[in-house]
Amino acid sequence: MDLDALDRAIVNRLQVGFPLAPNPFDIVANDLGCTAPALISRLQRLVATGAATRFGPFFDAEAMGGAFCLCAMSIPADQFDAVAQTVNARPEVAHNYERDHELNMWFVLATESPNDIDEIADAIQDETGLAVFRFPKLEEYFIGFKVTA
């Protein structure tokens, strides 16, 4: 979809944050110089057309006691699809990407406790006979949603 100036202003403004107040859309609409109903209908369209993937709270699973770990595997081409099925079948696998490198599969494990990460990575190793490299984050350098629409 084509975004007009108001859509772009909405995308840029709402990456920063959203008020926790009874009428939050009024506050944001006021910043943007539009009305709350106009803002809401634009947002519905942005989400419905896929220009935005989600609007709402972003949770930190680690702050809730859960754990995340980036993992990678090097999979021979003729086994790739079968291994992808095995890996994706695990509900703890949140995202999985094929990438153009010798380590050609990269996925994120998300579990409710840090101890589960190794258990699941080991189980995938046992099931596939292939090593699962683990790249837990040691330090995070601030992320923002910084797409300028």
Binding site: Q15, V16, F18, L46, A51, F59
Partner: peptide, 18 residues
């Protein structure tokens, strides 16, 4: 949000669509 359980309440743009 204060405890960091919620990082922020925000819109996630779809990079591909943009």
């Amino acid at each position: 949000q204060t405890q960091g359980i919620i990082r922020r309440i925000a819109l996630a743009p779809n990079h591909y669509r943009l």
